Simulated scan of single mutants.
Amino acid sequence: MSSILVINAGSSSVKYQLIEPQTEERLASGLVERIGEPEGRLVHRSDDGREEERRVHVADHTAAFAEMVAAFERAGTPVAALGIAAVGHRVVQGGSVFSAPTRIDDLVAAQILELGSLAPLHNPGQHQAIVAARERFPGVPHVAVFDTAFHQTMPQEAYAYAIDSGVAERHGIRRYGFHGTSHQVVSRRAAEFLGRPIESLRQIVLHLGNGASACAVAAGRSIDTSMGFTPLEGLVMGTRGGDLDPGALLHLLREGYAVDELDRLLNHGSGLLGFTGTGDFRDVRAAADAGDDEAALAIAVYAHRVRRYLGAYLVELGGADAIVFTAGVGENNAALRAEICAGLEWFGIRIDGSRNESPDRGARRISADDSRVEVLVVPTDEEAEIARQTRALVG
């Protein structure tokens, strides 16, 4: 295989990478964002370091895919000459139907669209990107890699909600979990870093980015995770608040809020943004350091929620061999890592200050030599994992 094109379609963006599958070298990458807005943005990077940025109007994900193809052509590398042997697609919601990477045919594509009722912000756009990609590359295999698949190993007591079972079954209401591709690759790479078989490890992976989730991983299998029926449950995030008493939503409905208003509030107006006016953790940290009380509270709530799940998963796993930080905030914010791990020495968790402050960006140990639990920072790479799973499936 000469290259695998990885398509990561979000609710209002399409990210893409062209990857050499043997070495995982990036041959090209790019982003089309602000889909559906009056003015969108395209960024395309070639392997020779050249970068194109332009403002474009992108009506939908189909148009975004066309912009990607045009960007390759303007860079002098038309897609027909790229040697694309397979296309891997990130799909957020696989429901209970898909528990592994799946080769896409007409039936699978239709099922992905049907599952859009469980992920209306993501699956419909991802389906559009899949249709466009299959039309443009009809002679190569297309593979769907599902965010939810890794969590299909959760036991029923971890994924079932305690509501009327008939209602839950009719409407598919259960905990699905997300960020599964990230949790899978990070837990595997943590085991490789430690030089231990993953089957021997109990890990707690903390994916802390604009979206955030925690996952308890035993012997390489997800046994619990913080996100639930949707990505709204669990940790505090950039624009999502995580755990919230459902009674608060009923109260707001009775106070006159419409369903769409609540959707915007929960998905786009909560979390760090709701506290401070910005969802960027770097800006929140800077404001807190400058004496902003609301920013300081936002960070305190953020860390408290992570610690709550960390404690719960220590109980579920019967202890941990490794705690692993990953994603944009987890990989780059030493102060937050220190706050999360503070006072946990009695669990055997002790970090080393100088290691934690190291500017190194690779996989690294930040725990002290006398820490019984390894504390690691391991960069996530969902696109490389999608390419790896695509290659493994198609041969």
Results as ranks from 00 to 15, higher is better:
V185G: 09
R240Y: 05
L208G: 13
V186A: 05
A214Q: 01
G166S: 12
Q184I: 12
A219G: 14
G228Q: 03
S200F: 04
G234H: 14
I163M: 12
A162F: 06
A168H: 07
A214G: 14
A168S: 04
L206W: 08
G241H: 06
G234Q: 10
I223A: 00
R175F: 08
G234L: 12
Y176E: 07
D224E: 14
Q184K: 15
I204F: 12
V185L: 15
R202P: 15
R170H: 14
S187V: 05
R170P: 09
E199C: 04
S182V: 06
R202C: 13
S200D: 12
G211R: 10
T181K: 13
A212F: 12
G166Y: 10
C215V: 10
S213R: 12
D245P: 03
S226E: 12
E169N: 06
L201I: 02
N210L: 11
G241Q: 08
H207Q: 13
I163V: 15
S226M: 10
Y159C: 10
C215F: 09
A168W: 00
A216S: 11
S200R: 11
G177S: 06
V186F: 02
D245H: 02
Y176N: 02
I173P: 01
D164E: 05
I198T: 15
T239E: 07
I173G: 04
Y176K: 06
E169H: 00
F178S: 03
A160G: 12
P231Y: 01
G172M: 03
H171G: 00
I163K: 12
L206Q: 12
D243M: 00
P231T: 01
V186L: 03
Y161K: 06
H179T: 01
L235R: 07
H179E: 04
G180E: 01
L206F: 13
G242C: 09
F229V: 03
A191Y: 06
H171E: 10
T225R: 03
F229P: 04
R196L: 13
R174K: 12
A168Y: 02
